[in-house]
Design a protein around this nucleic acid. Structure first.
Lengths: 226, 226
DNA sequence: TTTTCGGAAAGTGCATACACTTTAGGTTAC
DNA sequence: GTAACCTAAAGTGTATGCACTTTCCGAAAA
């Protein structure tokens, strides 16, 4: 059974690296890999059953995305930011979400508005059930809707990218008692303003919402420091 | 003299890829390479006197930065965006600069404010001389000062990255007659607002400034389309 | 006991090799 | 003359090899 190496698809679709990037990014964003953890090329190569070459390319891309840090001649490391930088990311997030909310209030189509409101109302059930996992998933969707509603591709990319980078540091915010209910109320303010096409109010409500999340998450972030 | 291959530094500082990224990015941003142009790995490898391996990593990174586009089994291409996307980038830029200006108005130290004003006044000379090259260089500095003045690292990164991606499409704006003088006047409005610590006015002035640049540059962008 | 030093083991950086894909001409069929 | 096909050349995707660097650990020195 020597050399029985199951040649994975010999057809070249050029997707190997992309898949690895997604897989690794997901592990980082969902917290299966923690800030500070090392990512050595050989282990990853073994894990994904490829050679080091595509692994290196994936790490390079993750580095450019800001999810891992790289220094010459040493292993890539899941990005761990200073408290100061973390704060700047939350602030940036608040500003960006504010912009998205304002633009959404001004530009969302009738359908987009309707869907936003319907889904928001529906999320009340999750709050009452105290289903934090499900609410967290809904929450991601809610914010994505806001980003899309701004009808600006580049801003969408910026805010999405920022959110991914921030994700490893804001885990588990909904486990705090009462946070679910408050989050719902904050969403309510944003939705209402958007339905009224009141850009200023929407921006303000969104900014406040992120600022609160920032405060809640910071606790967890500092707890995870080494 | 066979195999006389001038071993480039045998010492591994791990900077090869980084240097190439910078070099290529610079060519794209300064317009030595135009949107749509192909970047084939072999030519680049020859040009930089390295093998394809580091070239590929550099291209991967440039791809993540948004400066080149990549598709499976074909050469990397200098990013060429749709008019729609270009518009979204300009709008994002205006929003981001608005934020930076507002935060600068609120947060710049006394020294930063002083320097901003002094340099701004000094740039009047370049305007009178009609030195568009030099003014363009100063202009980059001026905006960088604004980005830094916001005292937010992440926003600085976002806006810097966006500016780089936009650069290939806004070349030569200062060659339009009268643009230099108008640009100076717009800067003046921003500087004045910042000196007065009037965040709202600064944001508004900065937004307007970018919006005007956007209009001016769009002409060139569409002229460069293929 | 702690520090310092040496050297093997583990890991990164780049070159090279080769399989596979796309591209570009030229040739044949219509 | 044009369209369809075929094939060689050019180019990309990944594996492998080797030089170099970092890391780790045990032995010697303080």
């Amino acid at each position: 059974m020597l050399g029985q190496v199951r040649r994975k698809r010999v057809v070249r679709e050029g997707k190997t690296v992309e898949q690895m990037v997604r897989a690794i990014a997901d592990m980082i964003v969902t917290g299966q890999m923690l800030p500070g953890e090392k990512l050595d090329e050989i282990s990853l190569a073994t894990r994904f059953e490829v050679s080091r070459t595509p692994v290196r390319e994936a790490l390079r891309e993750l580095g450019a995305m800001g999810l891992v840090g790289r220094e010459p001649n040493r292993s890539a490391v899941v990005t761990n930011v200073t408290e100061n930088y973390l704060h700047s990311m939350f602030e940036a997030m608040a500003e960006l979400e504010g912009i998205c909310a304002r633009l959404s209030a001004e530009r969302m189509t009738v359908d987009e508005r309707r869907l936003l409101e319907i889904e928001h109302r529906a999320s009340a059930r999750l709050v009452h059930q105290g289903a934090d996992e499900d609410y967290a998933a809904y929450n991601v969707e809610f914010h994505t809707r806001l980003y899309r509603g701004a009808h600006n591709e580049h801003i969408f990319e910026l805010v999405t990218q920022s959110r991914a980078r921030l994700a490893p540091f804001r885990r588990a915010q909904f486990r705090l008692p009462g946070r679910l209910t408050k989050s719902y109320a904050e969403h309510e303010a944003i939705v209402t303003a958007i339905m009224r096409a009141d850009g200023t109010a929407a921006a303000q409500a969104a900014y406040l919402h992120v600022e609160i999340v920032s405060g809640v998450s910071a606790i967890f972030a500092s707890a995870g420091d080494q």
